[in-house]
Amino acid sequence: MSIVKAENVIYSYKRKDDETEETKPVSALAGVSLDASEGEFIAVLGHNGSGKSTFAKQLNALLVPDEGTVFIDGMDTKEDKYTLDIRKTAGMVFQNPDNQMVASVVEEEVGFGPENMGVPTEEIWERVERALSSVGMYAYRESNPSRLSGGQKQRIAIAGILAMEPKCIVLDEPTAMLDPKGRIDVLEVLHKMNKEQGVTIIFITHNMEEVTGADRIFVMDKGKIVMNGTPREVFSKVEELRDLKLDVPKVTKLAHELKKRGVILPDGILTSDELAEALKHYQNTPV
């Protein structure tokens, strides 16, 4: 069953010229189709301005298509009557955790969403406890969010979404401002939610190392999907990705450079263990 289904989505921002007062459309999405099944971990890559964030906003009806259709769990985002249900189904987490905090106590921050949805008080507390435990922040439930690190704040933001029990979470560069430990912690939480609770993840990032564990990667350019496949398939295309202002994980790049020097290796090596395994046949032929 597909939880996210985008069919040929076209969208333009309307920009007003300061002098002539004329509005003219600036194309951001030029026919995007993407289908995500329930429980999938989907990564979206693309250079700045490729349309990733505009697409993300289509997924919880912050924006609706000019043409084409987005269905979230079968609900058409263009129909107003579904807007609230769509936002309960697909929660969003943005880049800067500081812009997403509203309360002065972690528990209240996480409880804000479900309370706003009209969840009974008793159940709110249960949800808050579950959400905080699953992001590993239960010990901080009485802290002030502003005193936490970037990675901790981002995990609180994720818990706030989790407490609304969405089927799908859309994250727009949630790790961009985090230090290495913060990145690792956020990534772990996402994979855990995906595996244990079956939450569908749509994860946008510029960091290639973060998406090797995704089920599928979609690559955007000029408002279109230009590549789509498993991490191994996508990261086999080292040169094409570079032309799209993207990159591959360092280990993939290393394997690619070794191949250019005549070393026999398969395409799309994603982990150092894979590289060690693939180099084994050279081990008995020391120089």
């Binding site: 290393l254 450079e257 070794l258 020097r261 005549g262 026999i264 032929t285 020391p286 120089v287």
Partner: peptide
Amino acid sequence: AVDSIMGQIRPHF
């Protein structure tokens, strides 16, 4: 890394 690995293996040209 490339330099170090190339020093350790002999490619089968």
